[in-house]
Design a protein around this nucleic acid. Structure first.
Lengths: 114, 114
DNA sequence: CTTTTATATACTCCGGATAGCATATACGTG
DNA sequence: CACGTATATGCTATCCGGAGTATATAAAAG
């Protein structure tokens, strides 16, 4: 579980992140809103915390969790090289790759399609 | 392995996608460039194909693989709600969440910090 | 001090995903 | 046709992560 991609691969964790996008929340709030067992919430929050997606502050017995930016930006950065393909027009990728085809087709006598 | 996030969680698959971002490639090219066993490449390509990240065309005995857009856009779409936090200034998220704090602090007699 | 509330952790179990290896399939070449 | 090349698939062993349950810790309330 090293990369940010593995972290956000888990649906429950994405649900937590989505929820935290609107506001910081306590563990109990997350538990209720997502109808998810408390130990499960705590475990996912631990993973999210250790991977830098969230941070927590203490409020009496409660812990308030909030988002942190960096890991999201990391995902965004990975996406960037691909985004250039659809930023112009929707089906630009195919055309683009068609043109910069680098693989020289094998020489052949008969050209067969199937 | 339903979601696009699980697909891109695998490092070798991301490597393949990164490679295909520059140009379409045959299985053999991917195998050599990534120094990865051929069956492994084929298996990952299968996953990528079935999840819509790539498509292939037949060229004699070779298969040329190229990127497809939709799944990337799906990731991009998920990222959008979070992106608004860092689009203005780097540490905007903390301030934002500070302001829209919805969790009413527990009533207490003594406020302790640790 | 005892009880209740809030959260974290420990432990076990199970399924699914990946690696590795062997093999099948398909096409091209001579 | 026999052989080499390119790619896909089948099978097995293994490993890791998540679910579930019980329990520990900590603070508040009475």
């Amino acid at each position: 579980m090293e990369s940010v991609f593995e972290i956000i691969a888990e649906p429950n964790r994405r649900a937590i992140l989505d929820l935290l996008a609107s506001s910081q929340r306590s563990v109990g709030e997350i538990e209720r809103r997502l109808r998810m067992p408390q130990p499960s919430v705590s475990k996912h929050l631990r993973v999210l915390r250790e991977s830098g997606f969230v941070e927590s502050t203490v409020d009496a017995q409660r812990r308030l969790y909030r988002l942190k930016l960096e890991p999201f930006q990391e995902v965004d950065a990975w996406l960037a090289p691909f985004r250039r393909f659809w930023s112009v027009r929707v089906d630009a990728l195919a055309h683009h790759l068609d043109r910069m085809d680098s693989s020289k087709p094998t020489k052949r006598k008969t050209r067969r399609r199937r």
